[in-house]
């Protein structure tokens, strides 16, 4: 699975908030068709890293590049059009729009842009595929939590992004929902999509990721296959403390 060429390169990226260095000199690649995990203890800078890639926050220094486009210099909407789509740590659906319109938002303005009936049919097909077809004309407020999370993925996929960022997408799900969620991500992987995911659920990391980057206090402390990095002494120390 890790045979693709690098799609996204992160070089010496640093993010400061006043005196706090949230992301410190991060460097890694994401290859085409791979699912890459960013893991680490709470407050290690994972979500900030995601926000830097998606352009929610500007980088302080360093460069993020995708297929020759400098994402770290581009405004957020430009990054989305270049093919980066994301979900949010706290689920963000558009409450005033129906389910189908939520998905169309991604299809109309995303990486591959559609309009009119083309966008509608594409969004309907996506909803069908993700298991929300029956809910398409309901208001989003009637959806359950897992369904809102699915809707968010559908919106992100609707623009046919080159890379999908999932920020703790599996957090807060009950065991049944978790299985549904993991199957969904696994199917994305099966389709050969490029995904970066930030996750705390270790089972998900082991079964879904081709490769992992481990962060602690804003720095990269390990990189490699999930089973290797999770047995790395420094990684264990970062999670469990010095004992």
């Amino acid at each position: 699975m890790t045979t693709g060429s690098p799609l996204l390169t992160v070089r010496n990226v640093t993010k400061r908030f006043g005196g706090l260095v949230a992301v410190n000199d991060m460097t890694f690649d994401v290859k085409e068709h791979e699912v890459m995990g960013i893991i680490g203890p709470n407050g290690s800078g994972k979500t900030t890293m995601m926000n830097l890639i998606s352009g929610a926050l500007p980088v302080t220094s360093g460069a993020i590049d995708m297929r020759g486009h400098l994402l770290s210099q581009a405004p957020t909407h430009e990054i989305a059009r270049l093919g980066v789509a994301r979900t949010f740590q706290l689920v963000r659906v558009l409450p005033g729009l129906s389910v189908i319109e939520n998905v169309m938002a991604g299809a109309v303005f995303g990486h591959r842009r559609r309009w009119g009936n083309e966008a509608r049919f594409f969004a309907e097909a996506l909803l069908e595929r993700i298991g929300l077809g029956a809910h398409r004309h309901q208001p989003v407020s009637s959806l359950t939590y897992i369904d809102q999370k699915r809707l968010e993925i559908a919106r992100a996929l609707a623009g046919e992004p080159a890379v999908l960022l999932l920020d703790e997408w599996l957090a807060g799900l009950n065991p049944t929902e978790l299985q549904i969620g993991m199957d969904l991500v696994a199917s994305l992987r099966g389709e050969g999509r490029t995904v970066i995911l930030v996750e705390h659920v270790m089972d998900a990391i082991r079964s879904l990721c081709d490769r992992c980057v481990v962060m602690n206090s804003g720095r990269k402390i390990a990189e490699g296959a999930p089973e290797d990095v999770l047995s790395d002494a420094e990684v264990i120390r970062a999670y469990l403390g010095d004992e």
């Binding site: 998606s54 352009g55 929610a56 405004p75 957020t76 909407h77 989305a80 059009r81 789509a85 994301r86 949010f88 963000r92 558009l94 409450p95 005033g96 729009l97 319109e101 169309m104 938002a105 991604g106 109309v108 303005f109 995303g110 990486h111 842009r113 309009w115 919106r155 623009g159």
Partner: peptide, 21 residues
């Protein structure tokens, strides 16, 4: 598209930016 974009902006401007508006 502009009208649709404005409705999305009115709902959640952060999401609007992240879907490419």
């Amino acid at each position: 598209r502009l009208g649709f974009a404005l409705r999305i902006i009115g709902n959640d401007e952060t999401v609007a930016r992240h879907v490419g508006i």
